[in-house]
Amino acid sequence: MSDPMLLLSGVTREHRQGDSVVHALRGVDLAVHAGELVAVMGPSGSGKSTLLHVAGGLDTPTAGAVLVEGRDLAQLSAAQVAAVRRRSIGYVFQDLNLLPSLTALENVSLPLELDGSRGGLARRAARDALEEVGVGHLAGRFPDDMSGGQQQRVAIARALVGPRRLLLADEPTGALDSATGEEVLRVLRARCEAGAAGVLVTHEARHAAWADRVVFLRDGVVVDQSGPVAGADSLLATGGGV
């Protein structure tokens, strides 16, 4: 198999609170390859949000290494880490994903333009990304004129626009009803099968089940993993994502 898109190796993250040390993550190993969606499940306080922040270069591990597309973030300058975040990594949160004063197209093209792409190229890539998540017809809409599910599709398009291939999602369906949430997960899953790598943090088993693998986090430690299930290939008509 090729190099993972994201590799966490022995990642520990400690927070100091007065005299005591809180271990948010303890020796976490995780590899996520292109074409793969991995869910991280755990109760609140288990460290799953810290894991996502560390994976995205928003937080720095106390020990261990984080590699994005083979590049060790600890070996990069702050400016280089920022460039990796712009070019390789996209985020989808529960809400407040989109800038309300920009259209869907402008929201999606913004990261490319911030990275120096010319306007025309950025808009073309943004239009492609919107088409890929099934909301190409909403390119000119403002976020307030879209449903929650449509906004999350636009957020997924922005997370994977242009060269970005690593999508980090924190409870992306938390604010949606179950049927709409499922449509968003279907889109997320399809984008991963088309070649992206996804990490989905959730406390909902039903959402985690859309992933190829489910990692269970407890008190900052990976206690177990589920899947790929032996024999499940026979249930799959397509081999995508496996």
Binding site: M41, A205, A209, V214, S226, G227
Partner: peptide, 8 residues
């Protein structure tokens, strides 16, 4: 969870 993944 493995069962739930199969159903999904």
């Amino acid at each position: 969870m493995a069962t739930l993944q199969e159903f999904t």
